[in-house]
Simulated assay, not measured.
Amino acid sequence: MNIDLSGKTALVTGSTAGIGFAIAKGLAAAGAIVVLNGRDESRTQEAVAKLKREVGDADVRGVAGDVGTAAGCDAIVSALPAVDILVNNAGIFGPQDFFETPDAEWERFFRVNVLSGVRLSRAYLPGMRDKGWGRVLFLSSESGLNIPADMIHYGVTKTADLALSRGLAKRMAGTGVTVNAILPGPTLSEGVAEMLADAVASGKSLEEAGVDFVKAHRPSSIIQRAATVEEVANLCVYIASPQASATTGAALRVDGGVVNTIA
């Protein structure tokens, strides 16, 4: 399969590192004009330079803005009025006991993990509809189906992303625009590497620490290891492609089989 995204402009939020950067790299390698996003201008431009080094002929740009705020989303849309592909990747996570999670933390997670996608989809979907082609991807999580007891606030936001993507897919019915959710499982991103830092400091490789984490905390995993960011990005690039035109309103798992269901 030859995925050609030449002429398509893609915005990937939260893409200075981790899964977001890998998605941006995959889209750039497929020929898309890629716009990276981070909260900080200098870090965003560093990521742009890195992606240009790694994909030599890529057309890569950057737009800084905190998608967890209305002002940040407005700044992004002002700098980039239209896109063909929107990847709502920006997100935060972290374990915290339910009884020790205050309203402010719930609200912070909801603003970043859910409202960012609401605001940007509301801004960009009409243009996609008018052109008769577009792709919107929400990075949800297996935690949206398999709510972790130590991250209930996070799981709730990822369930909300599933509902949002399904609803928007129905809203865009018959327009040529598809909306889907991607559900990664444990993935060796920079954020997960920080979470596993103590295990790595004890002498294990990051991959070994990932295996231990999966076996201890996600024992239903079929692959029995954490995924790489590239493995997640591969699915995203396909779903963003013309070849995926009949896939919409779907919750697509790249979780290593963690969610124990055949559906």
Rank of each mutant, 00 (worst) to 15 (best):
S15Y: 09
V12F: 06
L196C: 11
F98A: 03
A160K: 05
A47G: 02
S121H: 02
A246F: 14
H217D: 09
D57K: 05
S42V: 13
I147V: 14
M151D: 14
E207Y: 09
L188P: 15
A173D: 11
A163W: 02
A71K: 04
V60H: 03
E142A: 11
G256W: 15
A32R: 02
T69E: 00
S241L: 05
M195L: 15
T101D: 00
N260G: 02
M195F: 14
A58H: 01
G174N: 06
V214D: 05
G18W: 11
L183P: 06
Y124A: 04
D4C: 04
V258D: 05
I76K: 13
N37I: 03
V67Y: 05
R111T: 01
V87W: 13
I3R: 09
T228E: 10
A71L: 01
V112N: 04
N37P: 05
V118E: 01
I92K: 10
G62K: 05
N88T: 12
I223G: 07
V63P: 09
M1R: 09
D255V: 12
R108G: 01
E142K: 07
A197T: 08
A227M: 01
T157E: 04
R225W: 11
V200Y: 03
G91A: 14
G68F: 03
A79C: 02
N234S: 14
V48W: 02
L164V: 04
A71F: 00
R122I: 07
A173W: 08
L139A: 05
K25V: 04
I147F: 07
G210D: 09
S6R: 07
P186W: 13
A49C: 01
G132Y: 09
S121Y: 01
G174F: 05
I23H: 01
G68L: 09
A240G: 07
A227F: 02
K8F: 07
A70D: 14
K50F: 06
T248W: 06
R122D: 06
L206A: 12
R111N: 14
A197M: 15
N113L: 07
E230I: 05
I152S: 00
A64N: 02
E208Y: 03
A75E: 13
F213E: 02
Y124W: 10
G7K: 05
V48H: 04
D74M: 02
T44C: 13
G176D: 10
S116K: 08
G210E: 04
S42I: 08
A82N: 10
I182S: 03
N146R: 15
K131Y: 07
G31W: 02
G176V: 10
A28D: 02
A244H: 08
D40V: 04
I3F: 08
E230D: 15
